[in-house]
Structure formats: C-alpha cells, structure tokens
Design a protein around this nucleic acid. Sequence first.
DNA 1: CTGAAAGCGCTAACAT
DNA 2: ATGTTAGCGCTTTCAG
Lengths: 326, 326
Amino acid sequence: MKDVAARAGVGLKTVSRVVNGEPGVTPDTERRVQEAIESLGFRRNDSARVLRKGRTASIGLVLEDLADPFYGPLSRAVEEVARAHGALLINGSSAEDPDREQELALALCARRVDGLIVIPAGHDHRYLEPEIKAGVATVFVDRPAGRIEADTVMSDSFGGARAGVAHLIAHGHRRIAFIGDQPRIHTAVERLRGYRAAMEDAGLEIDDSWVSLGSTAPERVRDAVTSILEAPEPVTAVFAGNNRVTVTVVRLLAGREEPVALVGFDDIELADLLGITVIAQDAAALGRTAAERLFRRLDGVNEEPAQVTLDTVLIPRGSGEIPPPA
Amino acid sequence: MKDVAARAGVGLKTVSRVVNGEPGVTPDTERRVQEAIESLGFRRNDSARVLRKGRTASIGLVLEDLADPFYGPLSRAVEEVARAHGALLINGSSAEDPDREQELALALCARRVDGLIVIPAGHDHRYLEPEIKAGVATVFVDRPAGRIEADTVMSDSFGGARAGVAHLIAHGHRRIAFIGDQPRIHTAVERLRGYRAAMEDAGLEIDDSWVSLGSTAPERVRDAVTSILEAPEPVTAVFAGNNRVTVTVVRLLAGREEPVALVGFDDIELADLLGITVIAQDAAALGRTAAERLFRRLDGVNEEPAQVTLDTVLIPRGSGEIPPPA
DNA sequence: CTGAAAGCGCTAACAT
DNA sequence: ATGTTAGCGCTTTCAG
C-alpha cells in the first residue's frame, strides 16, 4: 500500500480510500491510484485490516465430520448465508471428540472469527463463555449447548422418532427394535425417548434387549441387529436412529429371507429407490436458520438466547409399511 | 497481552514466550504469567500474529459444491492433512461459476492463506499468477489449471471411462449411450474421450444421437436419456458421466420394463445395494495427495509443477453386467 | 479533497 | 532469564 501510494504520488490514506471505495477522492487521483494498484499487482492485506478493525468478516463452523452427507447441505446453507453477508467460512471437524471440538472452536476464536456455529461434540461449553462475552456470536446446531445459555437450532428428534415408531405400530408391529448412536449424543437419547413414548402411547412393553445404543460403526450395528433378530422371539421391525445406522441396517436386511420393517431417522440419497421409509430432517434449513440467527446478532440485534426446533417429516416409501409376519 | 504482562509484573516478551511455549522462562515466572492469563481470560490475537509472522497457518479450499457427496471425503482428507500440519481450513463453493471461483480464491489470498487448493470452475487462472509468485502455494484438484503452470492432481477420467465402456462392450453391448456433464468441464470431455476410445478399440461406430453432454440437473438428464431410449433403434446400455447423472439414470431405468445396462463414473452410497456397476475414483486420495503436495511446497521443497493422475477402479455390481436383449 | 501521525496486538532482533 | 524497541500493513483521527 505504501508502494502504491509512492507510485501514484499520493498519500497512504488516499490509497486506502480508493481500495475501500470511500468517498472523497477526485476521479483523476482515483484513476492514478488504480493504475498503480494494477501495475504493482497490489492486493490489500486483510490481516492488517482485521487487526485494525476488529472484524474479520468470517465465521467458523465446527461440525462433526465434513464427510458425513448429512452435514453437506447444512454447511452449504451456512455458506450461502455467510456469502450473502460478505463473510467467509472457516470450518473443521471435531470427529465427535469434545477436546477436538474445544481446540477447534478456540482456534477459530483466536483467528477472531466474528461468529461461531457449533455442532457440539461435548457437553460442557463453558470454555466459550469468555469468547461469547468478548463478542463472538455463537449458535449451536443439531444438539444443545452444555452448561451455558446460547442460541440453539435443532430438529425435533423426540417428535420425529415418536412419529416414526408410531407409524410402525400403526402398521401392526408390536415388537420393535431401536438401534441408535452413542448415549452421550443428545439426539440419540432424544430419539430413544421418542421411541419409548410411542411404545408407551400404544401400551406396548419394551424388552430391554430390543434397544441398542452405541457406535455407528457398521460392525457394531451389525452385531446389535443380528443378535436382536436372532433372538427366540425376534422383533418384526427396526427403528434406526440415524443415517449411518440406517445404511447398515438396510444392507443387513437385504440379505435376509423374512422381511423386517424399517424406519430410519434422516433421509438418505437413493432411499426412494430402495424404498426406505424415513423421518427426514431438513439439514439445509438447520444451517440456514442458525446462520441467519448468527448474523442477526452480528447486526446488533440483542435478543435472549432462544431454542428453535424444526419439524421433521415422515416419508413413507415401503420399508416402513411392511406388516409383521402373520 | 500488555495487560497480562502488567498483571504478572513481567515484560511483554516474557508473556509472548509463555504463550508460545518458547524456552527461557523460569518455571516460577511461567506460573505467574499463566495465572495472569487465566484470570484475565486472555487469548492471543492471531491476526496480529499473522501480520507479524507472515504466515496464517490456514489454507483455502475452493470447491464446486460443499454439498456434493463427492467432495465430502475430499474436503475431509484435506482437513486431515491440514490438521496434521497445524493449519485450519477455509472453504467455499464456486457453484461451477468461474467468476465466483476467482472472487473466492482472491478473497482467500487477501486473507493471506498459506496455500490454496482449487477445484477449478473456470479455464483461465492467470489471475492467480501474482499470488503464486507472492508465495501462495497452489494445487489444482480434479481438473487442470487453465493457462498457468501448476500442480494438479486428478483421477484418470479418460482411462476410467474407457475401461467402463469396454466392460459394457465385453458384455455384448454395441449400442451404448454416453450422458455427461457440461462440455466446458474438463472431466466431462475426458470421459467422453474415453468412451470414444473404447468404442473405437472395439471397432464400433458411434451414432451422434447416443452422446449427450449438458447440465446434470435431473430434468435435463431425464430428457436426454428418454429421447435416446425411445429412438427407433435404442441403445442397450448407458455410461453415466458422473455421480449426479448416475443417480438420475438409475431412477429412470428403475421405472422401465426392458433392462438397460448401466455403468456410472463415481461411486455412490448404497450403490452396492442397488447393484450399480461403477468406475470409482478415490476422492479422499485426491484430497490427501493434493494437500500433501501443498504442504511439501510450504515446507520449502521446490520442485517443478507436476501433474499427478490417480487410477480408478471398476466395481462390478450387476447393472454393468446385464447383457443386451437377444 | 488530501495527508501525516498514531496505534491495532503481536514477534524478531537486540539489549541487559 | 528477561526486557526494550521497532515495525508487520492497515485504518482512524485530526490537521491541512
């Protein structure tokens, strides 16, 4: 910038004005400055600008796994909103590890992102308190924040699971398994709660052996489902707690003789062709809503932290409408 | 930091040393400084650090669509490598728009990312020349750079498509359609070239009506496939140019009486269950290789820009082994 | 309309 | 082992 000023024969501030499109520069000087910029290949150093202005025009997104198809549309929606506000997106995966989540979130804060969208892996977010106090707008998505008050945007896991299980019950099932993610994950527990509620609504007893929470690794899910289906009095239907579980269960059921009904939480690509009935949540809406909340805060709106819950939709495609064997 | 120094009763540099884990500080003073840091809730401002050090410990990733499942594993692999090098990932989608690609890439450069990984949307990357000269390590992935010399990591689109089409021919097909992405996309053209080569290898003539390049929007693909299949002498097999095309074609073929063979470029989740034969590329390896190259450059290795090509794998699952009607 | 000087928070280089 | 000084490249403030 100094060089540009020298070359154009003007003061530093004038260059700054031109670069930022501020008023108060003669068209003529502006042209000279532009020429100098071109010929020097100058490009403003945003780091310095940030240091001075205090705002980075970037937001951080901490998610669980960049490669999980569920987060694709979510990230994209966040990006879209960020872009509309002239902000860039910095993101990383926590891999479901609370320490890594914290490390990432704090690294983003050290970069002075203006805001933070977090899909929590851990249950204690007090480490973010100083940052939030220091002005980093923060919104939690998909799962609630732990031990702090903060904006949260989630899907209705409880209601969705309840509706899904009720659907199976309506189709005649009485013995229904629930295979979910690890119990430390909030949505897993909520969905299990929904399952229990639906069973209770119908006056059905749950056998403990029908319920299995744990890693979504294919082997674990396979073992769980197999042992449930191979019991003396096997279940006739399975409710799968999320997209990864569903995929594994579908593979498993495909190899069996007797049909087993299935409803899965989360929609999956090509689920229509495979006839998989699902409870779909709108990942893009989740991201969009969170990002919009974030930028509203950045624009100075000062409301109480709120919990927003988005509805899920039951999409019947066949697997959930299979009746129990006669 | 100043405040911390004051509170701990030490000099500025001592605090800096503690914060950065540099040697030359008594355990005792270190403790005092740590206490001051804690009680003040201090966190280093990386913007200032960047300004001073010239390195941001962050890299930019410009891809085409954050939500495309193909880019999930790729981004994740890049993130993994970045993380191993202590760098953060800033990313954005070009939405296949060259102007947006440029805007994004330059915005990232203005943030002074150390390196840039670009999945090109455009064909002229001379706009990056000053940046590269200024030291921004740059690697192109999935498609080649336009009008500049640069590292490039790609899958073998030509060879993959050729093998896929040869597979169909080996199963008896003579009339094979090619449905691909827009002709301005390098991989689309390469795959078409592979198709032509395989046909020529087998001494087969191609009817122009069998080939259709264009948007991957479901409507466009549907129209293209329908018109090809409804011709007087329809094709007996389809080669789909990428994951999005494949998905639409599968949906379409599912609704038909007479079986049509299909091989698709790119693997898809659940393709195994649907029995879709594909040419799989290793998206994670693409990202990993690119990122590793990038960091090798950042570590000062100075080699000539190279073009790396990764092999694809044919995965037979049924759809590609359907023989033509007798 | 334009410019000079101060300083954002940090680190490198050089004292002490 | 610790402190002091200068300056990274920009914007803000205030003076011309």
